[in-house]
Design a protein around this nucleic acid. Structure first.
Lengths: 259, 259
DNA sequence: CAATGAGTAAGTGTATTCACTTTAATGAAG
DNA sequence: CTTCATTAAAGTGAATACACTTACTCATTG
């Protein structure tokens, strides 16, 4: 009955794969904020049964990426600008701590190489005369690699979890916006280099301080961009009574005859 | 078939109640670290079917309170002292942020009263000549009320979630140990008062700084206590291959006949 | 015509069953 | 006595079936 058996690459279980896919979808803004996820339709559209789907949804709800209401199911929360700014504030502290740990504990050669590679990649993306969108994509990639490497170097599951929570902001997620103007990107790149040096030199306080400033400056750029571009749209006060607006697939026909 | 129907107080669903109970159990150390949770046995002992139990477990796993391995089920992670210390480090930052937010945003009268009540309660517990254990219990209660009120005052779901993660440390959980010696408790109480004043006076930086110091000092006490009292026991390096040691109820007979 | 209430479809919560994986006891072979 | 293969029991993952709740349509009534 199962189509894919004895496949070597198939390490994980269905629920986990689903959780991964859905997490990605939610973070990428695949579902409109406030959307109500219909289990039956979602299951059909993903070609799975409800059981593993629910498993995935429960997990995501535990992670705080979805909200659950007892007899109404799962919804993707709508975040206000204030919430997003708070998240950056928290993230500045958490990433700062990660940088501090990395500096305190020292990093493996592999991670040092990854850091250097991401810096080089960022440099290249800034130097290239590629189209603006393409440059941005490249830089976003380098940026993610840089921060990822530091989080790894921190060697703390807890810090990683906290950062996951801080970045559970749909739409605004790191790799979507990241760098807003070329000048901003240059500034960020310089900050990355300072952070790298502080870590290599094993200077915890300096690394933490630099990282905090860096993230807070990203916060500023984001807020500026957000207010000037979106302003009105999707600025709801988190979990206010919003209209259902279900999703997961069509909810079309509703044919009935009188009693 | 369901025994409890049309009951007025029954607001929530079975899975949620279970999640709550289990969360409490895990935090209170109801399951030994490293224990493997057997779904069938646990379900029987809790008088529920596997479905809602699994739902609860998935949620807790999402929260990071349990660990899940594909075909082996859920386990309660064993934490090393290092991990616990890291948690305090993160918690210092998060609670500091909460205090800052509270000072920035101002607190409602209700919360101000709760803060004052908890301070008074702490004072009383320190002044009383009750038995040491009893005093400790009282102080722990006041302590929890104090920190809880500030977390509320921060008005940030994200900060609350982060703090939940930082306190997801079984056994060592806040209300279990908290204050170690009378002198420590006095020092803590004084810190609480300073924090309270900073918040009332709307001085964000001061509030944040005081709170950070406060939590870090708790960290020190905890580490001192931990090393002198437990030292060897339950100091494993997080997620190392530990022997199964299942739980949930007995696994007794194993009768079989040869092929 | 608006308000209200019954009845029904859609949707979520839970139970049960089946399939697949892991685990460990047993016994044969070296 | 140790090692390894065999094999069934126990356990988890997934699917299906059923129960209960919510929400909507429509008809009735004042």
């Amino acid at each position: 009955m199962n189509a894919v058996s004895d496949q070597p690459g198939m390490a994980s279980t269905q629920s986990r794969l689903l959780a991964e896919r859905l997490r990605q979808s939610v973070l990428d803004g695949g579902f409109a904020p406030g959307t109500r996820l219909n289990e039956v339709h979602l299951a059909r559209s993903l070609s799975v049964s409800r059981t593993p789907l629910r498993a995935a949804l429960q997990t995501l709800a535990g992670e705080g990426l979805l909200h659950h209401t007892p007899n109404r199911g799962f919804t993707v929360p709508a975040l206000s600008l204030g919430t997003i700014i708070d998240a950056y504030e928290m993230r500045a502290l958490a990433e700062g701590l990660a940088a501090r740990f990395a500096a305190e504990r020292g990093i493996t050669d592999a991670l040092r190489l990854q850091l250097e590679a991401s810096l080089a990649e960022g440099e290249r993306s800034l130097a290239s005369d590629a189209a603006d969108g393409e440059r941005r994509r490249l830089y976003a990639e380098a940026n993610e690699a840089f921060h990822g490497a530091i989080q790894e170097a921190a060697k703390s599951d807890l810090v990683k979890d906290v950062l996951r929570i801080c970045q559970r902001v749909p739409q605004t997620s790191a790799h979507n916006i990241v760098a807003f103007e070329l000048a901003d990107m240059r500034e960020r790149h310089a900050a990355h280099q300072r952070i790298y040096e502080a870590i290599i030199c094993r200077e915890p306080r300096e690394a933490e301080q630099q990282m905090r400033q860096h993230v807070l400056s990203v916060k500023m750029s984001m807020a500026r961009w957000y207010t000037s571009h979106l302003s009105s749209a999707s600025s709801s006060t988190s979990r206010q009574p919003r209209e259902p607006e279900t999703s997961g697939l069509p909810q079309n026909k509703r044919t009935r005859r009188g009693r």
